[in-house]
Design a protein around this nucleic acid. Structure first.
Lengths: 254, 254
DNA sequence: AGGTGGATCTCGCAC
DNA sequence: GTGCGAGGTCCACCT
């Protein structure tokens, strides 16, 4: 199902919406293209002056206001919002969307509409994605030499006072090694984390000689400096993505 | 300008796109609604099986694939991507989008199209927003007494070894004060951050007496306990939103 | 239900 | 250009 109306008056648009959207808003995506103004109050407050945008109302109550550029909607309402339409005294179409917890409301005034479209979309597919931190951890377990020659991993997710150590083991000289794995860019907080884990282990094993290695696809210079300050180490690791076998056929003709 | 075509064949759609979009993709937003499959390779990899979605191509090259629910696009291409259309041997419309730095490509195969729409949007307005962390920081600079009577702020964004201190100053007894501001709920990591900053300052000024105050709209009990453990303090601060005067008129009839 | 952390985060700003 | 932090982050997972 797909219906639409072009250059409607406010009342034409309202009729259209009541006919094709209001009875089953949870089964119909509504699209409005036109010149509008957006007013939002909730976790923050914002005002967006007149301009032509695309407004999308999804089946779960999500409202998105898209400008002609940028990936992010300039305004939006979260999943579960309730949206109503009215006509104001200036005969303009008004969209009001309300959300509870957190309380948020958005008002859109349209002073011109290019089109309104209603459609029902059937989509049960879920996104399959690959390339997570656990993969890197597994990779290191399978082949510890990608971190360091002679490294032996003895424990995964070792509990210590300050938290959970990703990988724990010993280097070629039997010195304990704490490894913290980050999926993307290593941050300063990762250093603090690693530092605490190393201190915890030092207390546990009653040895001053415990190494800490931060493994991430990228370690910024500032973080490297901080690691050096604390006598810690790092190893930049490639994030290699493994896909299920049955993807190969589909992907190869990409 | 707004053009569209309903239930087009792949070649109809391609003709339409070449006529209304290809000549000036940077001035035309293109919308495709139909049954498609999405294949993405770049920073990650993903495959999205057949389903009905709305595909939006913005004037800056952004591509968004929206399912019937959720705020986030299930797939997308960043600003600056180049998109091309073709027809494959099975007479299906193919969308290919490429991006460089980071290298990312997305392929969409349509096996059915409900509609294709092309429109040019004129929008020069920018969002005016209020209620950010910087506002709280400014608020404290303007009136430090909202944190504590007699407090004097001397520096904003003071660099120390572990990072960037939001606010630095001295209390009525000339004791150095480190202030970390959070715009919403204070977390454990905020405590660690503050703790590091206070330690850094202690070393810098060679004094053991340095105070640390965590300022946030809400400080959970667990975080308070942790702060007490470390001899740190907190101050719950109201996030007050200040709007430009000329907003008042617009907002009051919201 | 609330907290915690990751993200193809996105986006802006300072260096 | 790159790094860094904020976001009405969003969203899934966990307690």
């Amino acid at each position: 199902m797909l219906k639409n109306i072009f250059d409607p008056t406010a009342s034409d648009a309202l009729n259209f919406i009541e006919k094709f959207h209001k009875s089953k808003p949870d089964k119909t995506m509504l699209l409005l293209v036109g010149d509008c103004m957006v007013d939002y109050r909730g976790r923050a407050r914002s005002l967006l002056d007149w301009g032509e945008r695309m407004v999308m109302i999804k089946e779960d109550g999500t409202v998105l206001v898209h400008q002609p550029v940028m990936r992010e909607p300039v305004n939006w309402q979260p999943t579960g919002s309730k949206t109503e339409f009215k006509i104001n005294k200036d005969k303009q179409l008004i969209l009001r969307s309300r959300h509870t917890k957190p309380p948020e409301k958005m008002k859109i005034v349209f002073r011109d509409l290019k089109t309104v479209m209603a459609t029902s979309l059937r989509d049960s597919a879920e996104l399959v994605i690959a390339g997570m931190e656990t993969d890197v951890v597994n990779q290191i377990i399978i082949d510890p030499s990608i971190v360091e020659e002679g490294l032996r991993i003895s424990k995964r997710e070792k509990h210590v006072k300050s938290g959970l150590i990703d990988l724990y083991g010993f280097d070629k000289d039997h010195v304990p090694v704490v490894i913290e794995v980050k999926r993307s860019v290593a941050s300063i907080s990762a250093v603090q984390q690693l530092r605490m884990y190393v201190n915890d282990v030092k207390k546990d094993v009653k040895k001053a000689d415990v190494r800490g290695i931060l493994c991430a696809p990228r370690v910024p210079d500032m973080v490297k400096k901080l690691l050096l300050d604390y006598g810690l180490e790092w190893q930049e690791v490639e994030r290699q993505v493994v896909l299920p076998d049955d993807w190969q056929k589909t992907l190869k003709d990409f």
